[in-house]
């Protein structure tokens, strides 16, 4: 019971935690991107006060600590009478938080498409829908992809915060193992390595894309 060494079993337990981290990230990215693209297109194409208001609301999510948002939603859900799991709450908060950032990425990318290019496309007889799918999206995608990859990795790292409401993701599972084995440095070292191995290759790929596209 009080075997103080880190066993294979512990590592397996942490890997299961890493699985939860990835699952959280997946839902946060899917939800955040869906909402973000929707809001972003809205903000880019409908200027004036609705866009401004949406921007101001989303800005709140970027100006309040994520941990506080998690605590608030976790406390508010039962008040509303919802009986949802901590995991679901975690996914929802992370998704909305991601959407707040994704919206600005999408908006900036769409606005980065030069107007003359779009006018030229329309003057060639392309319809509004053609213009969007053939001109705007391909260009905006290139502009926005590096930022979006950064956002996805950011959500992966931020997902650690949901340990506060009892979701046993990678960092929480490591903490549990630390408590049992009393070997914080080794266990946290393993956790750090797992985070790094997930994040680093994707970050590198993103930087590579960015460089390649800048050269063109």
């Amino acid at each position: 019971m009080f075997n103080a060494s880190v066993s294979f079993h512990d590592v397996l337990f942490m890997l299961r935690g890493a699985g939860v981290t990835l699952l959280l990230t997946f839902w946060a990215v899917v939800g955040g991107t869906t909402l973000g693209v929707l809001f972003g297109l809205l903000r880019a194409s409908a200027p004036g006060w609705p866009s401004f208001a949406l921007g101001a609301v989303l800005d709140v999510f970027r100006s309040v600590p994520l941990l506080i948002q998690i605590i608030l939603v976790n406390a508010f859900a039962p008040i509303l009478g919802f009986d949802v799991s901590a995991f679901t709450i975690a996914c929802i908060v992370l998704a909305v938080y991601g959407a707040a950032y994704c919206t600005e990425i999408v908006r900036a990318s769409v606005l980065a498409v030069p107007q003359p290019t779009r006018r030229a496309a329309r003057s060639l007889g392309l319809t509004w829908a053609d213009d969007l799918t053939a001109i705007v999206f391909p260009i905006a995608l290139r502009v926005g992809l590096p930022g979006w990859i950064g956002l996805a990795l950011g959500l992966m790292k931020d997902s650690a915060l949901v340990l506060w409401i009892g979701v046993i993701e990678l960092l929480r599972s490591s903490q549990i193992v630390v408590t049992r084995t009393q070997q914080p440095l080794l266990v946290l070292g393993i956790a750090g390595a797992i985070y790094f191995l997930i994040s680093f290759p994707i970050a590198r790929a993103g930087a590579w894309f960015e460089r390649r596209w800048q050269d063109q």
Partner: peptide
Amino acid sequence: FGRNTPGLFQIYLVYFG
């Protein structure tokens, strides 16, 4: 290392590690 691991993890590392 700083950019590819969570900030919370880094705080834990300092505090516990």
